[in-house]
Simulated scan of single mutants.
Amino acid sequence: MPRDAAPLDVQNFAAAHLLRRPEPVRVGGFVAGFDPATTSPYVNYATPLPGTTPSEADVAALVAEFRGRGLLPRLEFAPDAAPEVEAALRRAGFSTEAVHEYLVCTPATLTLPAGLPQAEIPASDEEFTEIDAALAEAFAGEFPASAEGAARLRRTQERGGAVRFVRADDGGCAGAASCSAPAEGTAELAGVGTRPAYRGRGVAAAVTSALAGAMFERGAESVWLEYSGDGSRRVYERVGFRPGGTRLYLRLGRPLP
C-alpha cells in the first residue's frame, strides 16, 4: 500500500467497521456504531466519512445521538482523510483523548522470523475464556476479564475476523491478539497482549504475523494496527509493519461512570 493511500484506506475501514455494530447510525457525514450490550466508549463511538465537511448542525445531531443513549460522544479517525472534521468538532467543545500512530503491513512486507512459537486458532469456550483472562492480565486489568469479553472474541472469529494465541506451559494462554474481518481492502489488528511471565519469547510477533497472514489469505490488501510504545513498535516492524499515519481520538466531556 503506498504511504499516501493509508489514511484513506484506514478511514474507509473505520466507517465500514462501525456499520457492523448491532445498532449503526448515520448522522450527516458521520457513522456511529452502538452496541447495547455495553456502555464502553471504546465500543460505542463514531467516525467521519472520508472527505466530509460537517456543519454545526451535523455535529449537534451527532452529539444528541450519543446523549440520547446516555453515552459519551466520542470519535476515532484518521484526520488526513477528513481534514475539515477536527476543527468542526473542537468548535463544539471536543477535546483530545489521545493521538496514536498506526503501522501498516502488506503481503509484500510481511516477514515470518524463524524461531517464533506456534500461534494457534482457538475453538472451545475454555480457550476463548483463557485468552480473555490472559489479555486482562497483559493489560494490567485495564479491560477486566469477563464472559462478555470472551464472547466478543468468539464473535470476532465467527464473523470473518480472526483470533490467534500462543499456548502457555500450563496449557492456558501465554498471549494473544485478534483481527477484525476485512473491509475496504484492509483489516485492523488489535489487542496484542502477552502475560508478563511470557514476555520476551516472541509471543506478540507470533500472533501478529499469523493474523496478518490469515487476512492476506482472505484477500485483504493490508492490515494495520496502533502501537503503544517503542518496544511494541519494534516487535511489529520485525514482522513487516511500516509507518502509515496518525489516528485522532476526540471526546466531549468525561467518560461516564
Rank of each mutant, 00 (worst) to 15 (best):
A140I: 01
L116R: 10
A176W: 14
A133E: 08
L89E: 02
P196T: 07
G93C: 07
P196Q: 14
I131L: 06
P196S: 13
F94D: 08
T106K: 14
E101R: 09
E86W: 10
E101W: 08
A134D: 04
P117W: 06
A176T: 02
A123I: 10
A136V: 03
E101I: 06
G185L: 06
A98D: 15
V99W: 07
R164V: 07
L103W: 15
D170L: 14
A150S: 07
L112D: 10
A119C: 05
V163N: 02
L103V: 11
C105E: 15
A138F: 01
L189Y: 04
I131W: 11
S124K: 06
E101N: 12
A151V: 01
E120I: 07
G93P: 00
A136W: 02
P107W: 08
C173D: 02
P113K: 10
S146D: 00
L89S: 05
D170C: 13
F139Y: 14
Y102L: 13
V104D: 02
T109S: 15
E126P: 00
Q118E: 12
D170M: 12
R90E: 14
A197C: 07
A181M: 08
G115D: 08
G185R: 00
R154A: 15
A88L: 12
A133I: 07
G193Y: 00
T156F: 08
A108I: 01
E142H: 03
G171N: 02
T156C: 15
R155C: 05
R152A: 13
A145Y: 13
A108F: 04
E84S: 12
T156K: 07
D169L: 13
G141I: 10
T96C: 09
I121E: 06
A190Y: 03
